Computed example of a mutant assay.
Amino acid sequence: MALRSERSLDQTDWKILRELQQDGRLSFNELGKRVGLSAPAAAERVRKLEDAGIITSYGARVDATRFGLPLLVFIQLRCAPDRCLFKTSSAEKFPEILEMHRLGGHHCTMLKVALSSMEHLEAFQERLDAYGEYTINVVTSNLFTKHIIDWEQPEVDLHPSAQQEWDKR
């Protein structure tokens, strides 16, 4: 399977994306040095990646355990028909939610939630009860977190016809 996107990315674009995903605070001067461009050319490439919606934001990754939220849970939620969390609530009511995803299948929603304690989890559950049935999975350790997307090269063996299509890019 070949990667498809609305905008074709060349090797320089991928170099820029790798560098910015590792350190979004790089100056255009430093970024240009790392990818073999002048600072203005690097800035123009980044602007084009932003305009294409490929780069959507810049920010800091934080460790929630360091500021009092050591309990991480994933909650699969199956909303009651007239009480969908997506439609009837707001982020302000659930500041503990780090991520919220709509799902296909038995559950309609997946929540990633950071909490301070088991008591905090119980209080969160009481607020969540109004929306439907759920399954809670407590994270015991984080084995792998991928922060960098790098699909410049195919990561799997492709069928020969798919490989030929990939090589045409």
Rank of each mutant, 00 (worst) to 15 (best):
K168P: 02
L69P: 01
Q21R: 07
W166Q: 06
E96G: 04
A91E: 11
G24F: 15
S27Q: 05
G53M: 09
K33Y: 07
K112G: 00
P95F: 07
W166R: 02
G59M: 09
A123H: 07
L98E: 15
S5N: 13
L85H: 04
L77T: 11
S141Q: 01
S89F: 05
E19T: 09
E96A: 14
G53S: 15
D23E: 14
F28A: 05
E119T: 13
F144Q: 11
G32M: 12
V62R: 13
A60D: 15
H159V: 00
G68R: 04
G68V: 08
M110T: 01
D13P: 04
S116K: 10
A123R: 13
V62S: 15
M110D: 00
Y134D: 08
R7H: 10
H147L: 08
S90Y: 07
I55A: 08
I136P: 00
A42C: 01
V113E: 04
R102P: 01
Q76E: 15
D150Q: 13
I149C: 01
H106W: 05
R66E: 07
G105Y: 14
E30W: 01
K168E: 12
R25K: 13
D10R: 08
R45H: 11
Y134H: 07
L26D: 12
Q11K: 11
K146Y: 08
D157A: 09
R25S: 15
G104T: 13
L9Q: 03
A43Y: 00
I148E: 08
L69F: 03
N29F: 04
D129W: 05
M118I: 14
I54R: 09
R7Q: 09
D167S: 11
K168F: 08
D13M: 10
L20A: 03
G68I: 04
R34S: 04
E99H: 15
V156T: 06
K146D: 12
S116A: 09
A52H: 06
M1G: 15
A41T: 09
P81Q: 09
Q164E: 12
I54D: 12
I75E: 04
Q164H: 06
W166E: 15
A80V: 02
F74E: 09
P40T: 05
V139L: 11
K168G: 13
G59H: 12
P81A: 11
P81N: 15
R34F: 07
N137M: 07
G68A: 05
L71P: 02
C79V: 00
E165A: 14
R127N: 14
I55Y: 10
G24R: 09
R61H: 12
L158E: 00
V113P: 08
E133C: 02
